[in-house]
């Protein structure tokens, strides 16, 4: 049975998303290097304290347990928001109404940042029930 599990695993190759990246963004980057300490799959299962480097103009949204935390973020025009995927599956961050911008797929333990120009409702296009808000004040 175990063998068949590995066989199944091997059979399902990752398929990438093909949506366009917004211009004012950085590519998904490594957040920490779990592979140096323990198998990533085990490490990412732990409830970790994420060091939030938040300042007046820099905000972090943690993606965990199928939620954006905080789901509503008040900020100022020109602030940077970093989304970190600390969940067990891939996610993305996509403007919901007109699909104006998207992170494309953010793998587990990776992050993505964007300079915010206006308020937006956003969601995860992989998991339609995941929603968040950026409120520019």
């Amino acid at each position: 049975m175990r063998n068949s599990i590995y066989l199944l695993l091997a059979l399902f190759l990752l398929n990438g998303c093909s949506s366009k990246k917004a211009e004012t963004t950085t590519p998904a980057e490594d957040y920490g290097h779990p592979e140096e300490k323990a198998p990533a799959a085990i490490q990412k299962n732990r409830v970790e304290e994420v060091p939030l480097k938040n300042t007046a103009s820099y905000h972090t949204v943690v993606i965990r347990q199928m939620k954006f935390e905080p789901a509503e973020l008040k900020l100022h025009k020109g602030d940077t928001v970093l989304w970190i995927n600390k969940d067990i599956t891939d996610h993305d961050v996509t403007e919901e109404v007109a699909k104006k911008w998207t992170s494309s797929k953010i793998p587990v333990n990776k992050s993505w940042s964007m300079v915010v120009k206006q308020s937006a409702d956003y969601y995860c296009s992989i998991h339609l029930v995941m929603k968040g808000k950026l409120l520019v004040e």
Binding site: I5, P39, N45, I88, T89, V108
Partner: peptide, 23 residues
């Protein structure tokens, strides 16, 4: 469904391997 359930199985396999448990 394919990607998420595969990721969950990956977690389970990694854990049982670490715990030296055979399903």
């Amino acid at each position: 469904m394919t990607n998420d359930h595969k990721a969950i199985i990956g977690q389970a396999v990694a854990l049982v391997t670490k715990l030296k448990v055979t399903p």
